[in-house]
């Protein structure tokens, strides 16, 4: 169950260190993209979007279809992101908006119903079988060897893209006017509304951005992951762990927590092969005991 010798050997060997660190980063960065949308929606709307995994699933299926038609990976990722931005608006406008301020149970029911309906729709449209997009031809290249470690070029691209998107999101939220409005709405929506800002539009925008991030993550991951109806569920669970560890509503916290979870997975599988999943939950428990609001969450007085 515990193989500390193997873990020690790994962290003291450059090749293992490089391979496992990049492996942790890729898992973490894709998780971050999904969790960032989840935490953004919660931060502004105080809605726990249990249907967020569905955005990821639909983004992946959409990207798969566009790739099958066009053969362009870039177009497929864009389609996944834009398609889910649109779906996010529709979801907010016609479903979630009706339960703002309602009982959490009601929100949960709406989200769960959406998950079930979308899973069945995927089965009807694409079938119950699983799909694999396959590696785009431009990335069908041998892995790089950096300091003895193995690093696939495709994964370097994924990490870079996720970092750029995360950085861009942080910049928009921190430096632009719309970002300031979103942050203000998260803090005091009534005041923002009283200032004449159209919060209805703002909420739709937040759902669009959240959906887009999940859709992009689904599209980016499609070449190396399998597409199945219900695939959003497992990523949703991990995204919640990330959101809780990072602090509900904190984008920076989500980034740190997602990378942390990725590294726990990559090194945990060597040192604690039978307890890797458990390690993630232990990390969550420790952080919540020490800081109940998460790493970057705001304390509630």
């Amino acid at each position: 169950m515990i193989d500390l010798d193997a873990l020690l050997e790994c962290v003291t060997t450059t090749s293992c260190l490089v391979t496992q660190t990049t492996s942790g980063l890729i898992v973490g960065m894709l998780l971050f993209l999904v969790a960032a949308g989840l935490t953004l929606i919660f931060g502004v709307l105080k809605i726990v979007n249990f249907a967020h995994g569905t955005f990821y699933m639909l983004g992946a299926y959409l990207a798969y279809t566009v790739f099958a038609i066009t053969g362009s990976y870039i177009l497929s990722v864009l389609a996944g992101g834009l398609g889910m931005a649109f779906f996010g608006i529709v979801f907010e406008r016609f479903l979630i908006r009706r339960v703002y301020g309602a009982n959490v149970l009601m929100q949960l029911l709406i989200c769960y119903a959406t998950v079930l309906i979308c899973d069945d729709l995927v089965k009807i449209i694409w079938g119950p079988d699983f799909y694999a997009m396959g590696m785009p031809p431009e990335f069908q290249v041998p892995p790089l060897f950096i300091a003895g470690g193995v690093v696939p070029p495709f994964y370097l691209v994924l990490i870079s893209v996720a970092l750029v998107i995360g950085g861009g999101l942080a910049m928009v939220l921190g430096l632009t006017k719309i970002g300031k409005i979103i942050r203000a709405a998260a803090h005091n929506p009534d005041m923002v509304s009283a200032l004449g800002i159209n919060t209805t539009l703002l909420y739709s925008l937040v759902f669009a951005v959240g959906g887009m991030l999940a859709g992009i993550a689904g599209g980016l991951a499609a070449p190396v992951r399998s597409l199945t109806p219900g695939m959003g569920f497992s990523i949703l669970i991990e995204s919640f762990i990330v959101t809780v560890i990072g602090g509900m509503g904190s984008i920076g916290g989500a980034l740190i927590a997602a990378v942390m979870l990725g590294l726990i997975r990559s090194f945990g599988t060597i040192g604690f092969p039978l307890f890797t999943e458990g390690l993630m939950y232990i990390a969550m428990i420790i952080i919540l005991v020490l800081k109940p609001s998460g790493l970057f969450g705001k304390e509630i007085v």
Binding site: C10, S15, C16, T19, Q20, S23, G24, I26, V27, L30, V150, Y155, A221, V224, R225, T228, M231, F233, S234, I235, E238, R265, S266, G268, T269, I270, P273, L274, T276, E277
Partner: peptide, 21 residues
């Protein structure tokens, strides 16, 4: 070496790299 990934887990990269190691 033995690895036991969870069924349906989204990513197996860490298992792949562990096997390589």
């Amino acid at each position: 070496s033995q690895s036991w990934p969870k069924m349906g887990q989204p990513d197996f990269t860490e298992v792949v790299t562990k096997i390589l190691q």
